[in-house]
Amino acid sequence: MELLSNLQVKKMSELSNGYNIVGLSQGNLIGRGVIEFCDGGPPVKNFISLGGPHAGTASIPFCGSAVICILLDSLIKFGIYSDYLQEHLAPSGYLKIPTDMSDYLKGCRFLPELNNEINGMRNSTYKERLASLQNLVLIMFEDDTVLIPKETAWFGYFPDGAFEPVLPVQETKLYKEDWIGLKTLDEAGKVKFVNVSGNHLQISTSDMKKFMVPYLEDQTLAPTRQTPTEASSYQWISKVGHFFKDLIGLSEDQPLLHTVY
């Protein structure tokens, strides 16, 4: 599978020595696709995932819990693995109904390949590429109501054939049989399982600094003195962030990043 983003990445000479990826929600699957599917692309050093549906999600969040929303969700699930919805509805590519695994593996066009789930068609190259990461940071949101279950952010999921219990990642086949190299990474101490408070993508500035920034700093560069005119992009972005926080009255620990569905 070749993603359009892979072609773009290959053209960016500034990434030739390696780069980091920060993924938000379903964007994490595109990020992993770049790592696993990109043949001949520049190396990815660190992958930071915020609320990613890595093992799939059992529901599509639309408009809430009203009756019309429940009916809409049910109708979509009924034909979620049809060619039409797979082509026109992005979440259909990672909607995984645990009681409909046969249709999922046959009809879902993205996640089964990304997670190397199809028996007899597993690609060892995908495993090698993901296992080459220096660090994989998986951030789960404690009060996440968008991802079903929230543990999918850590690759945890329901067992095949049932909606309970939620299996921790270490008890899933994907991990135990090491389909994508996750077990290899974990045993090497390169997977960081992070749990933060808040709903989907509601992460505070202090948690960003604690769990994200250390993996985005270039450890290969010697410290250099910076003048105000030579401030890094990160410092500039940080100043802008503080400006908007002051402007709208947010405290240091209140989330700057907040997505509403």
Rank of each mutant, 00 (worst) to 15 (best):
S132T: 03
E117T: 10
D143K: 15
K96G: 02
W154D: 04
S132I: 10
N123F: 06
L133M: 08
N115R: 07
P165I: 10
K106W: 00
K150F: 04
D100V: 07
K106P: 00
N119E: 15
T125D: 13
L133V: 08
L114Y: 11
V146W: 07
V169M: 12
K173Y: 09
G107P: 11
A153M: 00
V166S: 09
L111P: 09
L136V: 01
Q134M: 09
A90P: 05
T145F: 07
T145V: 13
I118R: 10
I97V: 13
D83Y: 03
Y81R: 04
Y126Q: 08
V166Q: 05
R122T: 03
S82E: 09
F141S: 03
Q134I: 11
E87Q: 12
Q86S: 02
Y81F: 01
A153V: 01
W154L: 09
W154S: 03
L167S: 10
L111F: 04
P91L: 12
S92T: 09
Q170G: 03
N116F: 06
T99W: 03
S82I: 02
D144A: 03
G79S: 04
G120M: 02
R109K: 15
A131T: 00
K77M: 05
G156A: 12
G79D: 08
D143T: 12
A162Q: 13
F163G: 01
G93R: 13
A131E: 04
P112T: 10
F78A: 10
C108P: 06
M101Q: 10
S82F: 02
Y126W: 14
Y126A: 07
N119P: 08
